[in-house]
């Protein structure tokens, strides 16, 4: 749900439209499902361009790095993909959510 009074300059979807108009290649990542305590609700966006510039968030900064890397690949390949993040498992060197929740993030190319 988008209820926050976000100024347009901070709104990921408005930014994505602006980047598109500038001719940049753009990917949009969206939180589609959350379980347990998740930092950002379903519907939250992170937008990424081909150079790795990004705006918005899908977590509290815990998994953004991994999403950006995947997004740059999605921009090249064109196929959307679903990412899933759970509790951080330090021994396995996985990226995760320290808050104990689990989220699914859908990453797609714009156009």
């Amino acid at each position: 749900m988008t209820l926050q009074t976000t100024p347009e300059k901070l709104d990921p979807l408005m930014i994505a439209e602006g980047w598109m108009a500038e001719g940049r290649d753009v990917a949009i990542a969206t939180v589609v499902e959350t379980w347990g305590s998740a930092p950002r609700p379903a519907g939250s966006h992170l937008v990424i361009d081909e150079a790795g510039n990004f705006e918005g968030s899908v977590s509290g900064g815990c998994v953004e790095g991994a999403v950006i890397a995947e997004a740059m690949d999605v921009i090249k390949q064109g196929q959307p993909r679903m990412l899933e993040f759970g509790i951080a498992d330090e021994t396995a060197w996985q990226v995760g959510l320290s808050c104990g929740g689990r989220i699914k993030v859908y990453v797609e190319r714009l156009g």
Binding site: M1, T2, L3, G43, Y106
Partner: peptide, 8 residues
Amino acid sequence: FLNVHLPP
């Protein structure tokens, strides 16, 4: 996925 956008 249904992403709802309600005005603030």
